[in-house]
Structure formats: C-alpha cells, structure tokens
Amino acid sequence: MKSKIKNKLVSKSIIFCLLFLFVASTTTYAVEESTAELFQYHRGQDVFFMFMLVAFLMLFIKKFEWGVCLVTLLTLSVAFPLYVIIQRNLFDFSLGIELIITGIFCAITLIIAAGVIFGHVKIWHFIPLGILFVPGYILNEWFLFSYLEGVADSGGSILVHMFAAYWGWGVILALQRRDVNQAEMNATTHSISFVWLASMLLWVLWPSFTTSLLPTDLIITGMTTTYLALMASTLTAFLVLKWIKGELDPLIYTYAILAGGVAIGSTVDLVGPGTAWLIGAAGGIISVLCFLYLDDWLANKTNLTDTMGVNNLHGIPGIFGGLMGIPFAGSVQIYAIAGGIIIPLVTGLIAGIIVKIFEKPQLLLDDAEIFDINIDLERTQQM
C-alpha cells in the first residue's frame, strides 16, 4: 500500500515538474517575444521622430521654413497610410510593428526626396506627388527583397537613400523648371542653427533607423557599427573641408557628418568595427566632395537645381554604401544598385510628367505662397 502511494506521489511530482517547466518555458518565450517587440516599437518611434527632424535639417532657407514643415506633415499624412493600405489590402501584410516601420521608411524616403523638388512645384503638389511616390517605392522594395535574393541593405542605403535622391531627380528632370536656379536661398544664423540641431539629433537617433528591422541579437552590433561610421564621417568631413576651404561651411558640414550613417546602411549587420569606421570615413569624404564639386557640375550640365543637395548626402553616399555590400551579397548587389537608380528615376519621371499639368509656382521657396506671413506682425500690433 505504501509503495503504491509512493509511486503515485512520484508520478504526480514528475507530471507537476514537467508542467511547470513547460509553462515556464512558454512564458519565458512569450516574455522574450513581447520584450523584443517592445524594443522594436521604441525604435520605430525613433524613426517617426527622425522623420520630423528631416524638416529641421532643411530649414536653412529663411523665407521657406514654414513651407518645409507643412510639406513634412503633408507627405507623412499621405505616404504612410497609403503604404499601409496597399500592403494590407493588396499584398496581405499583417498589421504589426514591422509594417509600421516599413511604412515610416516609405514616408521618410519621400520627405528626403522632397528636398530635391522644393521650389520646383507648389506646396500642395506634394499631395499628388506623395500618392504617385508610394507605388514606385513599393515596386522598388519588391525588386530588392522579393525579386532579388540576398541583397545586403538592412539599413537602407539603397532602399531609402538612393531611391529618395533619384526619384526626386526623376521628378525635376520631367518638370524642367529652370527658374529655381535664380530663386533666393538666403540663410541666417538662426535658420542654420535649426540645421545644426536637427543634424546632431539625427546623428544620435540614426542607429534606431539602421537596426529597426534587424534580429534582436544583431541590434547592439548594428548600433556600434552605425555610431562608428557616423564618428568617422564627422571627423573626415571636418578635415576635408578644413583642408580644401580653410574654414567650415556650416551647411555642408552639418549634412556631411550624417554621410557615415547613409553609407553604413547596406552593411550595418555585416562588418566589424574597423570596417564600419572606414566606410563612414569614406562616406564623409565623398559627401563633402560632392557638395563642393559634383553639385555645381550637375547643375551646369542639367541646368536644374537639387534644392537641398540630396544627391550629395543620400544619392552618392548611398551608392557607395551599396557597393560595400558586394563582398557579402555578390553580383546580386550590383543588380540591386542598378535597380535602385533606374526604378526611382523612371517612376519619378512619370510622377513629374503628371504633376507638370498643374500650374507652375509663382513664388519660389517662399512661405508667402500659401501662408499669411503677416499674421504674427498683426497680432503683435494688436497687443
């Protein structure tokens, strides 16, 4: 009798222990999954914050500060929901944090592209431009990560930075609005201070962008390589500007320090610290040289203005970053880079041809185009 009772107790104890281990393991897994999603949520919010900071990065034109902010809000309000709706309803994407992050990637690509187009169109034209942009972006995303296999671009050198620059160029090539070349782009100490602030905050937040879709075990590595690349471009941009010009151009410098973040995008999860530093250093040098020499050369050849110099920070450093992925991805990376130029140029040209039917802007890079700029003066007088 005692042996039977003992056997029952032993068997029940074993069953209890097994149940406990099962529950504990599943609970731990659930907690780990929940924690990973929570951290991804916070990185996604950082990218939303970065989206808004892009506006401040472009506020150096003293008469066009409100216009830049308005376009930023309009493009987000068009691109993000349209991207989510298309992916959900046409391609059966589940509504989760990854869709939210890829949606803000789409929107941030559009606002970067807007930097090329400012002045070439009226402010409200960015609504139809946003609608036309999203299908092209989704096509590029599909080409890179579904049609092609094994592309190295976790941090968006090709997907975001290259697409933004060359979609914007496609639009202005179609529009052929040469009067922007004569538009006033006067800056002030105050307006450039906005750029300094935005650049430094973007610098701090950049790892959230490059690691937002990485597996949990690669996030710290990605953060490290991103910061090292940014530190390197910050240093080399200073040295090259000082060497060539003898002094710092604050607008070139505040943009070029971010080139390391652009260049490391394709290999953020693939290279070690030393290589990341070298990629960032080269990115800073390339960006400065593009601002100093390529920008004027392109303007003379095309007679068109890349208003914010997007090609100098995002386009060419993005191509360089994509090229750095060739040792890891092989020939597919070359196809990705080629597609990353051709697809945005073609879809941008189509968007520009469509938008060209609208009336040309009469006031170029001027808040007075759409705002009552005397409102603050009138209120001050009333007080």
Rank of each mutant, 00 (worst) to 15 (best):
Q381A: 13
L214Q: 06
A299K: 06
L132K: 07
R379K: 13
I104P: 03
N140W: 03
G168E: 08
Y147D: 09
K301H: 11
C106K: 14
L57E: 12
L218W: 00
R88D: 09
I286F: 05
K4L: 15
S208Y: 12
G315N: 07
I334V: 06
V195T: 07
I354V: 11
K8W: 08
T254K: 08
F105E: 14
S193C: 05
W203H: 01
V346Y: 14
I15W: 12
L241K: 08
I219N: 09
I279D: 09
V31Y: 02
P81L: 05
S287W: 06
A24K: 14
I127D: 11
I370V: 12
Y166V: 08
T302C: 00
F133G: 08
V262C: 09
E369K: 06
P207G: 01
I104A: 04
F48P: 01
L313E: 13
K62V: 04
S212A: 09
C69M: 15
I279S: 11
V23S: 14
L205A: 06
D295E: 14
L129W: 13
F51M: 14
V71D: 04
G325N: 11
T26R: 08
K63R: 14
L251F: 14
V240C: 03
E184T: 09
G261F: 01
V240G: 01
Y227G: 10
I375V: 08
G96T: 09
N312W: 04
L148N: 02
E141A: 06
D295K: 12
I158R: 15
S331K: 15
T109Y: 12
W277S: 06
Q45S: 11
G130T: 03
Y29W: 08
K2S: 07
I61M: 06
L19T: 10
E65N: 11
T27C: 03
L53C: 11
S208T: 13
R178L: 06
L74F: 01
T307V: 14
A30P: 00
L173S: 05
F93R: 06
M231Y: 07
K12H: 05
N374E: 15
P81I: 08
N186P: 08
L82N: 11
Y227W: 09
G280K: 08
L278E: 00
I326T: 06
F48W: 09
F56I: 13
L239E: 01
F358R: 04
M52Y: 11
K245Q: 13
Q182R: 03
M58A: 05
S3W: 08
I158S: 11
Y41S: 12
D153Y: 15
P215L: 00
K301C: 09
D376E: 07
L70S: 02
A152H: 03
E141C: 05
A351W: 10
L57N: 04
I285D: 02
A164T: 07
E184L: 14
N311P: 01
F163K: 04
G265D: 01
